[in-house]
Amino acid sequence: MTATEQAGTSAPTPVLSLRGVSRSFGAARALLDIDLDVYAHEVVAVVGDTGAGKSTLVGVLSGAQQPDEGQVLVDGSPVALADPASARSLGIAAVFQDLALCANLDVVENLFLGQEVVRGSLLDEVAMEKQAWNLLGQLAARVPSVRIPVAGLSSAQRRAVAIARSLLGEPRVILLDEPTASLGLTQVAEFLTLVERLRARGHAVLITSHSLSDLQAVADRIVVLRLGRTNGEFRADHVTYEDLLAAVTGVAR
């Protein structure tokens, strides 16, 4: 969808929404009555303290966990995300904090793991390598070679590989769980450029973080979670650090 088309419709439908979603683990309420919308061409940051429910939120959105109450909607229609595979088939891809790459396999092998391209009964390395360079190029991700084991890459490069892998099925929504947790300052800057590329490609991007400042430069909206509830939603270009801190900690200003 281009910007002009979007302007033509009065109110665009969110690609992915949550309505009144709750999720408990025994007596612990991880999520309580959450409403959330994510639009195409948009980056939503979900911030909150440890235990605020960020990971559970990504779990529910990616189909890894099921809500006790409430609905998940894709393009405005309720859907059941029974498992990550059904979420993927609806165009929702998640990159988890630990990336889930095989360190002994090279970049191409990791990108296509489980969805290899074959010619006859043998692997088509040429087609896969070509597409790998394409994907990484679109993300402006620099790797020394796509034929070295992932173990030899920096953590930022590995994250780029994991994100490139999530793009293989051309998903509309990309969920990134705590992507900046293990990155240095330079690497965070590189990562933000990568997120801008994703937005420019038209994806809806949802990123969680416990850092208040990391994502402000790239996010369009910031949603604050506190103890499983939504505790404020801000436009990223207007909100101050103090506002966010107050919402995250629950301390009145």
């Binding site: 990336l99 889930a100 790459l101 990791n110 489980g114």
Partner: peptide, 8 residues
């Protein structure tokens, strides 16, 4: 585990 999550 990574392989399983990749669909292997």
């Amino acid at each position: 585990e990574a392989a399983r999550r990749a669909g292997v």
